[in-house]
Design a binder for these strands. Structure first.
Length: 584
DNA sequence: GCCGTTTTCGGCCCGACTGTTTTCAGTCG
């Protein structure tokens, strides 16, 4: 059992306890445990197998340690099975609505018997909610908006969350004799930020044993269809997985076909047609009038690899990230596809947090992790004081932090640590700290963490005011979206990007897997407008510095090259581009 | 439920904001 699954189990327990009005500190203990477990790099099941003492982990005591052991050893948890009967499952969904926490959800349930989002919406429309003690007109309106928003958010799986599933499936299938290759195609391969399902492609001599093994995968909840070369299952996580077994000769064509996108595929097939050929998932064939078998070996052109397939169509190889029919086919034909940015191009990470604010690790740990990644520089950018919950820094603590940073930096000449701060943009667009404090820093990152619902015009004004401030260098997670959780804030992005260009402020692509903000299409637009772009991880732990690759993936989808991204440059060039004095 | 001790109980991060109230509960970050 993966750490993520154990963590999800404890989150569920916390929700149930919340809804049954348990001691809030007990609830918090479960949530803390869930977070601790999820952020651990080492799998807990291994620790259990080795009979390690789990209570040595901060946040895990005797009770939770025993529950982890039970989960790992039996795959179940008696305690959870007992308490989950007390709560209708629809309430967990209601809990996810913005503005509804455990108290209000419980009240709706106990007083009005509401147990589903649909019921909630209906009763709100009838005005019944406003009658409830502690509720009112405004609350009712907010709930209606929240249910509408919830529907928009959809339920696609984060690419990040699909990764371990793909990995486990590959391992599961690759162990089978006769299996030559296993690849995930579809939107997963194109690095789309979320996936609707997974498409797995397998080369094998015998399809049947592959199918048998596939449906025996331990995460399979139900088998929707199981054919000779194609099967569909639903996993415990509700993710749908399609598998397709193809012969080696067709692998390139099949991979291309199932990678898509659909529009890209259609364009390729048309292109083949124009050249007197026919493209299918089995390969590229010459068309001959009156040929008895249109897929005869004598008509075969290409299809074992994607490279030869694209070449046969007169195209240079198109990386999967670009296959969205956004002009890539024309570019490939003319040989002017961009040389996409690669993970190794990044010279430094410009946003991360230490335990001075809401990060987990000390500055020195973060420094060492950055050095291990081969970075030449990095910026430590803890939160400012407005974010009280994150233990944001005020001027006094900022000065104290500076002392610590200087002491640490002196011991690590091999990497340059930049002093930065993720300063809050307040409601009126002013910054959370005074100029005299901010100008002590090497870089100033400005970010919105509050007042997400301002009218668009005011939101635009607010952000423009903030990035017009002469000390601001980077606008962090510009739209504040959380994929599947929070919609982007509404404002005139175009105007903000133009303002950023004017004031030499870089816009961030935040590589946190549920942010990826700006998103691919917005990044493309930012580049078109001449905005400077930085990709950073906003890491809150040393391990999550590795999330850089998710940011790179989105940048590639946005057609960005190394030259388009500021933190691929040597430090002096980066600082010059931002109009800063070269850092000493 | 966890943690740390002034060890076996008592505190647990907390400020801002909203909408409901008439001094505060609930939610968010």
């Amino acid at each position: 059992m993966e750490n993520a699954e154990i963590a999800a189990t404890f989150e569920l327990i916390a929700d149930i306890l919340d809804l049954t009005d348990e001691n809030p500190f007990k609830v918090r203990a479960y949530r803390t445990a869930a977070r601790v477990i999820e952020s651990r790099s080492e799998p807990l099941h291994k620790a259990v197998e080795e009979a390690a003492d789990l209570t040595e982990i901060q946040g895990i005591g005797k009770e939770i340690a025993a529950k982890i052991a039970e989960l790992v050893q039996t795959g179940r948890l008696g305690y959870l099975e007992r308490i989950r009967r007390e709560v209708p499952p629809g309430l967990f969904e209601i809990l996810k609505l913005r503005g509804l926490g455990p108290k209000k959800t419980r009240k709706l349930w106990q007083s009005l018997g509401i147990t589903t989002i649909e019921e909630l919406e209906e009763r709100a429309r009838k005005g019944e909610l406003a009658q409830l003690e502690g509720f009112g007109q405004k609350t009712e309106e907010k709930i209606l908006k929240a249910t509408a928003d919830y529907r928009l958010l959809g339920a696609r799986t984060l690419h990040f969350a699909a990764e371990p599933v793909v990995k486990a499936l590959k391992k599961h299938l690759e162990g089978l004799p006769g299996v030559k290759q296993v690849e995930a195609a579809g939107s997963f391969r194109r690095q789309v930020e979320t996936v609707g399902d997974l498409d797995i492609l397998v080369i094998a001599d015998q399809p049947y044993p592959v199918m048998e093994r596939f449906t025996a995968f331990d995460q399979v909840a139900s088998v929707e269809s199981a054919g000779e070369t194609r099967s569909t299952v639903i996993l415990d996580s509700q993710l749908q997985v399609d598998i397709r077994v193809v012969p080696e000769k067709s692998f390139g064509a099949a991979l291309c076909y199932f990678t898509g996108s659909k529009d890209h595929d259609i364009r390729l097939r048309k292109l083949a047609q124009e050249q007197g050929m026919r493209l299918s998932e089995y390969g590229l064939y010459r068309v001959e009038e009156g040929a008895p078998d249109p897929e005869a070996d004598s008509l075969w052109v290409a299809g074992e690899t994607e490279e030869e397939l694209y070449a046969a169509l007169g195209l240079s190889f198109i990386p999967p990230e670009l296959r969205e029919n956004r002009g890539e086919i024309e570019a490939a034909r003319q040989g002017r596809l961009p040389a996409l940015i690669e993970p190794g191009d990044i010279r430094g990470d410009l946003q991360m947090h230490s335990n001075w604010s809401d990060g987990r690790d000390p500055i020195e740990t973060m420094l060492n992790a950055c050095a291990a990644l081969g970075y030449e520089y990095f910026a430590m950018s803890d939160h400012s004081k407005a974010l009280a919950m994150a233990h944001g820094l005020d001027a006094a603590r900022l000065r104290l932090q500076r002392q610590e940073m200087e002491e640490i930096a002196a011991r690590y000449p091999e990497i340059r640590m930049l002093r930065s701060l993720e300063v809050d943009i307040l409601a009126d667009g002013s910054l959370d700290l005074e100029d005299e404090d901010l100008q002590e820093l090497d870089l100033v990152v400005a970010a919105v963490h509050s007042y997400f619902d301002l009218p668009p015009a005011r939101q635009t004004e607010r952000i423009i005011r903030a990035i017009s401030h002469p000390l601001v260098n980077i606008l962090a997670h510009p739209t504040c979206r959380l994929i599947n959780k929070r919609l982007p804030i509404q404002y005139d992005l175009e105007a903000v990007l133009q303002c950023a260009v004017e004031h030499r402020v870089a816009v961030e692509h935040n590589a946190q897997p549920d942010r990826l903000d700006l998103k691919d299409t917005q990044l493309m637009r930012a580049r078109e407008l001449g905005a400077m772009i930085v990709i950073d991880t906003d890491a809150h732990t040393a391990e999550t510095l590795s999330h850089m690759r998710h940011g790179i993936a989105q940048a590639r989808r946005a057609w960005l090259t190394r030259n388009d991204v500021l933190n691929t440059k040597p430090l002096a060039d980066l600082m010059a581009a931002l109009g800063k004095q070269p850092a000493v």
